[in-house]
């Protein structure tokens, strides 16, 4: 509250009209503080991460920090197994969720009759609200035994995590992709049909390319959801910090993700120890990865020829 009043006092002399309109002035101040504070908070988070995590980058040689052995008891802090775990689980989740999510969105947005859409949409929104711990529990109790029966040595594998994560990121992908399709002007579809395109040709060659920026965002947010998820993944991936052996079984062995490592070990480390700052270093790497994903999404959306047309429909 004090902050709000302070900013109002600064603004008042520079804006003569606002003196006559206190309500306006107050609201503007509140909004300004809210907007700036979110930026400040992000900045502070990053500074805090850096402060706690930087010692790891300074004290451990980079080769060791990104090495293949993660045995904190022996002071071996190699992040590679964790990076690999996150990568495998996320890639698996995206490979599963992407086609499923996009086709569902296309079905809902372009093909399904209105009454089916009315049913599907709220159901998918409910899916988004299921707590991740519940999904993790389900994965542990129901999915893992199933996967073990498929022939994996244990049911708690990267693939189990991918399945759960895919399921978790589906609502995000579907609802954002569907919004993107909805924003494509109706005239494009009519124009395509009027030349003799089939409905599928109109969707594939006109609607999807026109919706591409939104679809890219949908996918990127889905990936972001997958890579940052902790609880569910921790429960079902087996938590073995080993470099997975390459080959056809790569998805069917236990892995440990970066997020799960932080969550599992943070409670047991001495504050200020090397182990402690290494966990923060993992956080920094995660932070950088999610920035990279956002940046990539921005690049893909802003690519040549992707400019959005004038919106607004006739009739």
């Amino acid at each position: 509250m004090a902050v709000v009043q302070k900013s109002s006092q600064i603004d008042a002399p520079t804006d003569a009209t606002s003196q006559t309109n206190w309500g306006e002035w107050f609201i503007e101040g509140v909004i300004k503080v809210a907007g700036i504070s979110s930026i400040v908070i992000i900045g502070l988070i990053f500074l805090f991460l850096l402060r706690e995590g930087l010692p790891a980058f300074l004290d451990i040689p980079l080769r060791q920090l990104f090495g293949t052995r993660w045995y904190p008891i022996e002071d071996a802090f190699g992040m590679a197994p964790l990076l690999a775990g996150s990568l495998i689980v996320t890639v698996g989740a995206v490979v599963i969720a992407l086609p499923l999510g996009l086709t569902t969105a296309i079905y809902m947005g372009e093909i399904a009759p209105p009454w089916q859409r009315e049913i599907l949409k709220p159901i998918i929104e409910v899916l988004a609200g299921i707590p991740s711990i519940v999904l993790g529990f389900l994965g542990w109790i129901a999915l893992a035994p199933l996967i073990q029966r498929l022939g994996a040595p244990t049911g708690l594998t990267a693939f189990t995590g991918s399945l759960i994560l895919a399921y978790m990121s589906l609502p995000t992908i579907i609802s954002i992709a569907e919004d993107a399709l909805y924003a494509v002007p109706k005239e494009y579809r009519g124009g395509a049909l009027a030349i003799g395109a089939t409905q599928w040709q109109s969707i594939w060659r006109v609607v999807l390319p026109a919706a591409r920026p939104g679809l890219v965002i949908a996918v990127m947010l889905g990936i972001g959801r997958a890579i940052g998820e902790t609880m569910a993944v921790m429960m079902v991936t087996g938590n073995a910090a080993n470099i997975p052996s390459l080959g056809s079984g790569i998805f069917f062995q236990p892995v440990r993700t970066m997020t799960a490592t932080i969550a599992a070990e943070m409670g047991e480390v001495a504050q200020g120890s090397l182990h402690y700052s290494t966990l923060f270093a993992i956080g920094i790497v995660l932070f950088v990865i999610s920035f990279a994903i956002n940046w990539l999404a921005g690049r893909l959306v802003g690519m040549k020829g992707m400019r959005r047309s004038r919106r607004g429909g006739m009739l």
């Binding site: 002007p185 005239e187 494009y188 009519g190 124009g191 395509a192 049909l193 009027a194 030349i195 003799g196 395109a197 089939t198 040709q201 060659r205 006109v206 390319p209 026109a210 020829g305 400019r307 959005r308 047309s309 006739m314």
Partner: peptide, 30 residues
């Protein structure tokens, strides 16, 4: 039927693609 009876709409509705691809759209799909 719509290949034989084409339609031009009230508001110009070129696809958000290149000029070439707009014209080539029909020949390609049929």
């Amino acid at each position: 039927l719509r290949q034989h009876i084409g339609m031009v709409f009230q508001r110009p509705n070129p696809f958000p693609q290149s000029i070439y691809d707009n014209v080539a759209f029909g020949p390609r799909v049929v």
